[in-house]
Design a protein around this nucleic acid. Structure first.
Lengths: 338, 338
DNA sequence: GGCGGTTACTTTTGCGCATAAGTTGTACGC
DNA sequence: GCGTACAACTTATGCGCAAAAGTAACCGCC
C-alpha cells in the first residue's frame, strides 16, 4: 500500500501538497501540480489508509448496525427474512453516502457498547433492543443513535425511533375481520412488549370500538423457544374451535400456525381464518396466500440509515418516524356473514 | 474516551507500563503495579482506540464479508433467508475470535476491492462472486481469502473454497425420484453456472446411470428478474404435463413454482412432484412440506469464518472443503410406481 | 521602496498506540 | 568490591494522515 509520504517523495514535493490535492483543496495548489499529483495517484492506484485518517480526524466513517439477537427465539431473529432485507436497506443507504457498515449481532448490550467505542463508530442503528437497552447505550454513547421498532416514550428523549404504525395496522385488520363477520377473534404473540404490544393494542381497540368484549383467554401466547414451540402449537390448535379467526403478530407465526392446523386436519380459511403481519415472502408464496398487514421493511432500513446520516450532517430530525402499514387482503380469511 | 497516555499520567507512570499490563506482558511489570493498573483500567472502563492500534500494528482485526448482490434477481439475493443465516454464522465465529465484521454488499467488484484496501481488512470472505471476480480480487489483495460456493478449478489456486456437495445432493435426489417411478424429470434453474451447474450435473449423472435419456427440453430456464418471472412461470406451468417431476435448483424456486401451479389448478404432488434444494424455512413451513436436499447454511458460514481464522493464524487449510448434502424426504413427491 | 496581500508551497505537530532502545537499582557470584 | 544479570521501569520513535503554522517569492500600490 503506497502512502502519501511515498508519493510525495517520488513526486519531490511535500505530503501536504499531495494531501491537498486528494481533498480537492483548490486555490492552495497550482493547476500544474494538481494535475501531476492526480495523474500519479491514478497511476499507483492510491487508497487512503482509513485507520490513519480516523486517528487524525477522530471519526470513523463507520455506522454500526447492532442487532440484538434473541438466540432462543424460534428459531432466531437472523432467520427471519425481515432481517436480511433490513440489513440490505441500511447497507445500501450507508454505502451510497460514503460510510461503511459494521454489523454486530449480539444479545449482550455491554458487548455492543464496548464494540462501539472501540471503533469510535460515528453513528449507531439499533434493532431488536429492549427499550431500556437503547437508553442505556445512548446515555453512554454520545453520538447519534437511531432505533428501529423501539417503543419507549422515555427513549425518544434519547434517540430517534423509526417505527411502523403497528397499532393502525392491527386496528384495520381486526376491523376487516369484523366486517367479514368474525367476533371470536384471538390474538397470537409470544410476548406483550414493544411492537407486539402495539399490535395487540390495535386489535383490542378495534374490538372495543365494535363493542366486542375482549377476554384474556383470547390472547394466545406462543412459546418461541424451538424446544417448546411444538407443545405450544399443540395447545393452541386444540383451542382453535373457540375462535373463528386468529390474528398472528407476524407472518412467520401465521404460516407456522397454518402448517400446524393443516397437520391436524383443520383447514384455513374454511374452518378458521388466520392473518399475519409483515407481508414477507413466507405469506406471499403461501397457498392460500396469506392475508396480512404490509410493511415496507427495506424502507425501514433505508429511513433509519437516512435519518442517521442527516443527524451526522448536523441536521435535526424528528424523534419519531412512523411508516404506514396497510392491509393486504388475500385468501386466508373467510367471510362468515350469513 | 480515555487514552493510555492519560491513564499513565494519572497513575504517574509511563504509557509503556500501562500498555504492557493491557497486553498481559508478565515479567515486565511488578504484580503491585499490574494490579494498580488493572484496577484503574476497570474503573475508567478503558477501551482501546482500534484505529490507533491498527495504524501501529498494520492490521485491522476486520474480516470483510462481501456479498455480490445480484440486484435484478428475484427479488434479490438479500431476500433469501439463506443470506441472513450465512451472515449470522460468519459473524458469530468472527466475533468469538475477537475480530469484527464489515459487511459489504455490492455488485461492483472494483468497489469491493477499493473498500477492502481502504480498511486494510485482514481477511476476506466472498460470497456470490462470479468465479473470475474471486480470482481478480485475490490477485490484487494479498491476504487470506475464503470463497463460499465458488466453482472454479483455477480459483482454487488462489483461495480456499467452502462449498457443498451439490452434485451428490441432486444425484441422490434424482435417484430418489427415479425410485419413486419418475422418468420424465425436469430440472429448473435460472442459469448454468457454478452451484447451479453442479446441481444440474448431479441430476444429469443420475439420469445417465439409470439409462434415462436427457433431452435439453428437460431443462426449464426460469427468468429471475421480478418483471419477467410471471411470464416465465406461466410458460413452465403450461409445459408441466410433459413431466412427472420437476427438480428445482432452490427451495425458493420450488415454493414459487408450487404456488404458480396451485394457482393454475395443478396440485402437488398429485399431478406433479416438485422438489427443492437448500431446506430452508420456506419449504419446512410449506404444506405439503417440501421434499428437498438439506444443507447446513450456518455451518457454511461458520466453516468459512473458521477457515479464514486458521489462515490468519498462519495455519494451512485445505483449499477445498465440501460440506455434505442430504436428502430430506417430505411430502411433495408422489410414488408413481404402479 | 517598504508594506500588505496573495499564491504556492514546506515544516511541524499530534491523533493513540506498540515497541525498540535506553535507564535505573539491586542482588548475586567470585 | 567489581562486573554481571536481571527486574522494573522510562524515553523515544514511528505507523499514515490532516491541518496548523511557517516560509518564500512575487505583485501591486501609495
Amino acid at each position: 500500500m503506497i502512502t502519501i509520504k511515498e508519493i510525495a517523495k517520488q513526486l519531490n514535493m511535500s505530503t501536504t501538497t499531495v494531501s491537498n490535492v486528494i481533498h480537492g483543496k483548490t486555490g492552495e495548489v497550482s493547476d500544474e501540480t494538481k494535475k501531476k499529483v492526480q495523474d500519479f495517484l491514478k497511476k499507483v492506484d492510491y487508497v487512503p489508509n482509513i485507520s490513519a485518517r480516523n486517528l487524525a480526524q477522530n471519526e470513523s466513517k463507520i455506522i454500526g448496525l447492532a442487532l440484538k439477537a434473541r438466540a432462543d427465539k424460534y428459531e432466531n431473529l437472523i432467520m427471519d427474512p425481515f432481517v436480511s432485507v433490513l440489513i440490505g436497506g441500511v447497507e445500501e443507504t450507508i454505502r451510497n453516502a460514503g460510510y461503511f457498515m459494521m454489523l454486530y449481532i449480539s444479545s449482550d448490550t455491554d458487548e455492543i457498547m464496548r464494540h462501539v467505542s472501540t471503533w469510535n463508530v460515528d453513528g449507531l442503528i439499533l434493532f431488536g433492543m429492549l427499550n431500556d437497552d437503547g437508553i442505556r447505550v445512548s446515555e453512554k454513547y454520545k453520538k447519534p443513535i437511531v432505533c428501529i421498532d423501539t417503543y419507549s416514550i422515555e427513549g425518544l428523549k434519547h434517540f430517534t425511533n423509526i417505527g411502523l404504525d403497528d397499532e393502525q395496522g392491527t386496528y384495520d385488520m381486526a376491523n376487516y375481520l369484523i366486517s367479514q363477520g368474525h367476533r371470536k377473534i384471538a390474538f397470537l404473540s409470544d410476548n406483550m412488549n414493544g411492537v407486539d404490544l402495539a399490535r395487540f393494542n390495535g386489535y383490542k381497540k378495534a374490538l372495543k370500538d365494535a363493542r366486542i368484549r375482549f377476554s384474556s383467554t383470547n390472547f394466545l401466547k406462543i412459546k418461541p423457544r424451538a424446544d417448546e414451540i411444538e407443545e405450544s402449537l399443540d395447545e393452541i390448535c386444540g383451542r382453535s374451535d373457540e375462535f373463528t379467526a386468529i390474528m398472528c403478530v407476524s407472518d412467520l407465526y401465521a404460516v407456522t400456525l397454518i402448517a400446524a392446523l393443516t397437520d391436524r386436519g383443520i383447514s384455513v380459511p374454511e374452518d378458521i381464518s388466520i392473518v399475519g403481519f409483515d407481508d414477507n415472502m413466507l405469506g406471499q408464496l403461501h397457498r392460500p396466500a396469506l392475508t396480512t398487514v404490509h410493511q415496507d421493511v427495506k424502507a425501514k432500513g433505508v429511513t433509519a440509515a437516512a435519518t442517521l446520516l442527516k443527524q451526522l450532517s448536523g441536521q435535526k430530525t424528528p424523534n419519531q418516524i412512523k411508516l404506514p402499514a396497510h392491509l393486504v387482503i388475500r385468501d386466508t380469511v373467510k367471510n362468515i356473514n350469513k
